[in-house]
Design a protein around this nucleic acid. Structure first.
Lengths: 259, 259
DNA sequence: CGGACATTTGACAAGCTTCAAGAGAAGTGG
DNA sequence: CCACTTCTCTTGAAGCTTGTCAAATGTCCG
């Protein structure tokens, strides 16, 4: 009881210079002056409990967020309830840009785990571009990169079959977590695992498959010894095979801007 | 013979102030000074013949383009040849941003019709942000909006069935052309039609369906009297029904930036 | 007329969804 | 502490949507 609904273990530090994310090496280093500007730009920090709504699907406006800790996902739904998860949001991801720009075709954002967020004022974005063009450039970078992720996902739902889709998702998320330094290496140093807070319904909604078929496809891959999901953790037992099935290619990893 | 491989009817005018696109009312008006900046930033104009490659799928770098006239599409493929069309590119669309930013996960761009393009130097983008933050802001706008289009498309391939997908694509493209003033009204003023340069293979690759099933789905909609494709033109005969089938909602139309 | 290409159609197979129901885990309240 | 609910995962069976194979028709163009 005392451990529930409290602030998640990793909440945003009061000062950006203490940001745990910037110490991972996954993000482009910034000058102290720039860091101060970002901290000034940040209007708040907040937390959303697992299952909570970060951005409502129909609600325009809103704010900009950077995920500091936890998992969330963007989604869109049809009026009869069918839901498509567009992508998963992990620490370092900037979200809410589309709400600012889009024609009104909105998406929702929901927390999977408890999530910690840095909040930026929506109407401050133009000031950011004007006063600090380099950060504006970074925002564009992040936006273009986010579209690239959705592009890949569209290739998956449009062209890959069920087995390929599941293999792709496992590889994709594993690599993203790994890049953030969130992979937990085994004691023997041979393997590793990542936190896996999503359930099979999430996977089904992500890949455009039914829940039942998702289950059976996962089972097949598991019985082939390719992966293991247990106690809320994912362990890849044969990445080579998963990459081959999914036609997955790992890209050279550049550092990414962080707002 | 004399009419082939010549410059398409609508090629970019030498001066941006004569740009036909800006006269459509679909784009945000800009100050003459800004227009001059854009014209200076533009390094070239060019044309690509129907079926030609604008950006090669595997080739990094490259340039930025604004489509001035014609149809093109972005795509990604799997190594065995399956191809997913990510979206169609119409006049006013800015393309090539991802090549600048993405981790290397590239897409290709191919011309459907003869295409006229404004060319911008890739390495001038940072200068644009620095010297003209408002244009940088516009680029971000366009990038975020482009992602919104792909989001919608992902919802389509992930959740809609074949009939819904086809209806969605018909509505989506018709509305986009209409917004650009490229709908041709009938003499009686009751209906209209748009140029329809794509074939059923394009549609199949866009919607993640087989060619045969695409054909049969189109036929069904045609026999229901919902649309008509003839002589390279698309005519919607019952938009109400198509919108209902596709769960399509028309968004309020804001003017969009044009680079 | 012959060749390349897009469209069309039928028959059959396969992949995926739906329906139904049971098992296990975790939280809730008496 | 245990019954009860709820949620997730699991499995089987049946049916429908979609893909694959094959071939005919039509069209454009040299």
């Amino acid at each position: 009881m005392a451990t529930k609904n409290t602030t998640p273990a990793s909440s945003c530090p009061p000062h950006c210079r203490d940001c745990r994310l910037r110490q991972t090496g996954a993000f482009t280093p910034v000058e102290p002056a720039t860091l101060q500007f970002i901290e000034k730009f940040r209007s708040d920090t907040t937390a959303v409990a697992a299952g909570g709504t970060i951005i409502h699907e129909q609600q325009p406006g809103g704010k900009l967020f950077t995920i500091y800790a936890g998992w969330a996902f963007r989604y869109k739904s049809l009026s009869d309830g069918r839901r498509q998860i567009l992508n998963f949001l992990l620490p370092g991801d900037l979200v809410g840009l589309q709400q600012e720009f889009s024609d009104g075709a909105m998406h929702g954002i929901e927390a999977v785990t408890d999530v910690s967020l840095c909040v930026f004022p929506r109407d401050g974005l133009w000031a950011l571009f004007r006063e600090h063009p380099a950060l504006g450039y970074d925002v564009t970078w992040l936006s273009a990169r986010a579209e690239g992720v959705v592009d890949d996902h569209l290739l998956t739902t449009g062209q890959r079959n069920a087995t390929e889709r599941v293999a792709m998702l496992l590889m994709h998320l594993y690599r993203r977590l790994e890049r953030l330094g969130l992979e937990q290496r085994d004691a023997d140093g041979k393997g590793g695992s990542i936190d896996w807070p999503i359930n099979q319904q999430h996977i089904a909604d992500t890949l455009g498959l039914s829940l039942v078929h998702t289950n059976k496809t996962l089972r097949r891959l598991r019985h082939l010894g390719l992966h293991e999901i247990r106690d809320g953790r994912l362990r890849l037992l044969n990445t080579r095979a998963l990459e081959r099935i999914a036609d997955y290619y790992d890209m050279p990893r550049r550092k990414v801007p962080l707002l």
